[in-house]
């Protein structure tokens, strides 16, 4: 299935979790937050939340600003 991670399309296996999607970008687990289809997925649910086809995954962190 195809999911979008931070705007880029990725072919991933069925059952791919949010945790696995995050790992394509970073090994960090703190200072990072994830939204799937504009809903926050809390850190404690990364391992147990499976992605679906066409899901939009946003992986955010803090940068200089404001």
């Amino acid at each position: 299935m195809i999911v979008t991670i931070n705007g880029a399309a990725h072919e991933v296996a069925d059952g791919t979790t949010v945790a696995q999607a995050v790992q394509t970008l970073t090994s960090a687990t703190t200072g990072v937050a994830v939204a799937v289809n504009d809903e926050v997925v809390t850190r404690s649910a990364w391992e147990t939340t499976a992605l679906g086809d066409s899901d939009r995954v946003e992986v955010l962190t803090a940068v200089q600003g404001g």
Partner: peptide, 26 residues
């Protein structure tokens, strides 16, 4: 203040590390 943006795997160092070292609330 800090802003929230898409994580860039290529970026080195984090503003959060700077704030943590200085004990500044984010």
């Amino acid at each position: 203040t800090v802003a929230m943006r898409r994580l860039d795997p290529g970026s080195r160092g984090s503003v959060l590390d700077v704030l943590r070292r200085r004990d500044i609330k984010v």
